[in-house]
Design a protein around this nucleic acid. Structure first.
Lengths: 175, 175
DNA sequence: CTCGCTTATGCAACTTGTTGCACAAGCGAG
DNA sequence: CTCGCTTGTGCAACAAGTTGCATAAGCGAG
């Protein structure tokens, strides 16, 4: 049910339409949970049926107006209860590690290039996170500490990938 | 399709029955991909239908004999092709990061304890990985380099979690 | 021997995530 | 104006992963 709670969090931060949510998931919220627009629309529908959110009434319903949603008290309660619940970490799922292992059986052809490609992707992501950190969390300690912590998680995760992939690149042939 | 390829890899390393596979997934292969026995049985069925694996013929089919599978040439080919394919990393999915963010909206009550619990889990996992490393990959450089690399990935991943969760513990109230 | 425990295999139903497409409205260029 | 492009919303089908249960065989204690 994590996706529903992610949506509730995002809507509490700021009432939004489906597409706005999808965009915000591509950025901040997405460090630890990604979602496509279809998933988001589906869950918005469920959340509305469940009485946890509602369409934000608009003063002048002009044509082409996008639907925006806001969180109802029941939604806030549910989110608060979820934060207090206990939930185990999900096991890691990454195909590249698997492919390295498979390569031990069937040969490493092409893997060095793939590792380089992943390295570039992770370096790019890290640069983006660091740019966000510099912009939103200056050294003076302004900005929300919890949100900064989450961003730090994203940064350290990417740092891990870069470190490990660099090791991998050194150990693979045909660099 | 990663699970099917994980199974092919495992069967190439050693022909096994469904439950043996499930156990091995809990350990080595599972660093980067986990699976329940139900998933494994289902995929074994599909792989067999697709002609990529077959039941290992046994000399004396005693009662209670467990079915074991071995990889056919077509299966090896498919695995080799997969290793050569290009595939993007999957986005991270972890509910705890999400909950920290949600806590910025609805309060951090109970989170410090949860962070401690996760810390303990990750420390335990790290200790297990390090024990395996000490056992299977002594300093003299014996042992398969690729498999060692994959294990290093698991170790560094857990190290990341511990570092980040420690940061989180320091920043959360009511420790 | 038989009762309960463990091991091994598997089905069915459900939830979650992905892919591909459909449709409508606004917008800008020709 | 109108054609094609982009934006926003959404359905349907599928693939992947999870949960709960059903079944059967071996095994060891009483």
């Amino acid at each position: 049910m994590s996706l529903q709670h992610a949506i509730l969090t995002a809507l509490l931060e700021k009432p939004s339409s489906g597409l706005e949510l999808a965009r915000r998931f591509d950025r901040s919220i997405g460090y630890f949970w990604s979602a496509t627009h279809q998933q988001i629309y589906r869950e918005l529908g469920k959340l509305e049926s469940a009485g946890l959110i509602r369409e934000l009434p608009v003063s002048q319903p002009a044509r082409g107006q996008r639907k925006a949603y806001e969180v109802l008290p029941a939604g806030r309660d549910e989110l608060a209860a979820w934060v207090r619940r206990s939930e185990d970490p999900r096991p890691l799922r990454d195909p590249l590690g698997l492919r390295l292992r498979a390569a031990a059986m069937v040969g490493t052809e092409g893997l060095a290039a793939e590792v380089q490609r992943h390295l570039a992707l992770h370096r790019k992501q890290l640069a983006e996170f660091e740019a966000i950190e510099a912009r939103d969390f200056p050294a003076d300690g302004s900005g929300d500490a919890l949100q900064h912590l989450v961003l730090r998680g994203g940064i350290e995760m990417e740092t891990f990938w870069i470190k490990w992939l660099t090791e991998a690149a050194e150990r693979l042939p045909e660099g």
